[in-house]
Design a protein around this nucleic acid. Structure first.
Lengths: 163, 163
DNA sequence: AAGATATGTCAGCTTTATTGACATAAATTT
DNA sequence: AAATTTATGTCAATAAAGCTGACATATCTT
């Protein structure tokens, strides 16, 4: 296929030894985290594709339900995506009747976002399998471990970057 | 803008109350997990974009380094993506000298994948900030909590689905 | 010899993101 | 009042990373 035709290039030797955890690198957790998240989002993904929505819609529905009245700017800040990326997704959710916009009572430039009843239901339906998965993962865990997991996940976040 | 022009459609009322944790839904962990993962992958993303690579390249480099000699089929299985999706990314990594293919010694149809020296270095460079983040998140955690976090992450994975 | 398997490749499509440019309405500053 | 800034929306083009379907090749198995 790519059978080395041109002038012979000396290619570096392949390494056969696996990369293991070292003093400085914790590959085990890195990998566990990857698999955990991959499967964690697969539940809602399966539900969403029936409605023609994707992961991006899920995030928007989730946060608007958690913080009704949040503005578009708040949402951009939370999701760390661009305005244009959000726009399409948000428009579809509004057109489908899952989210409503209301002009801000003080600042009328703002568009405050609220879930509708069906938006609330969608958010709950999406969260349910994830929540069951979490409960399963906690099976047999002590209260200390449960709190420890929360602290760990919280500690994985970026510290506030100047703004 | 989208100023309701046509026949008046009665739109559902917006809901103003936030969704809180219930007996059945654990929104807190769902959200912590989202933020944790978002920031966790942002470190390598920043490194990768300098080389013109993306998240997909990272995953391939990681797993080939962890399991040198794995085949293309193994990788497809691990990443749960399609052959065609993998092909483009893998080709770029091979062309750039980070990964080498070697025909299987027993089954010569197989292409066993190995990292080169620079492939190993890339994998380590990508893992390093993630590992520091993990260590930071574990600060002050007891051995029990550390084990509990691993068990939790492991428990979040899908159980084996029949194959 | 026939069929199955592992891989590669071509062509086209979709989703989710990106950037840049510009428009509008409302609030704020001068 | 005029100018500027802010919050939002929108148009156009692009990119990354996935997808499906179809087909080719080499190799192994029966």
């Amino acid at each position: 296929m790519s059978r080395q035709t041109g002038p012979k290039v000396s290619r570096p030797e392949p390494l056969a030894t696996p990369m293991e955890d070292t003093d400085i690198i914790d590959f085990e957790i890195i990998e566990l985290f990857f698999f955990a998240y991959r499967d964690f989002v697969s539940d809602p993904d399966a539900i969403l594709e029936k409605s023609g929505f994707g992961r991006a819609h899920h995030r928007v529905v989730h946060f608007v339900n958690r913080n009704p009245g949040m503005t578009v700017a708040d949402l951009l800040d939370t999701l760390k995506i661009t305005k244009q990326s959000l726009a399409r997704v948000l428009k579809q959710l509004i057109d489908s009747g899952y989210i409503r916009q209301v002009a801000g009572p003080e600042d009328r430039r703002q568009r405050k976002l609220y879930p509708t009843k069906s938006g609330r239901e969608l958010a709950l339906a999406l969260a349910e399998p994830q929540s069951r998965r979490i409960e399963r993962a906690f099976e047999g865990a002590s209260a200390e471990v449960r709190e420890g997991v929360k602290a760990f996940l919280s500690g994985m976040r970026d510290r506030q970057k100047a703004d």
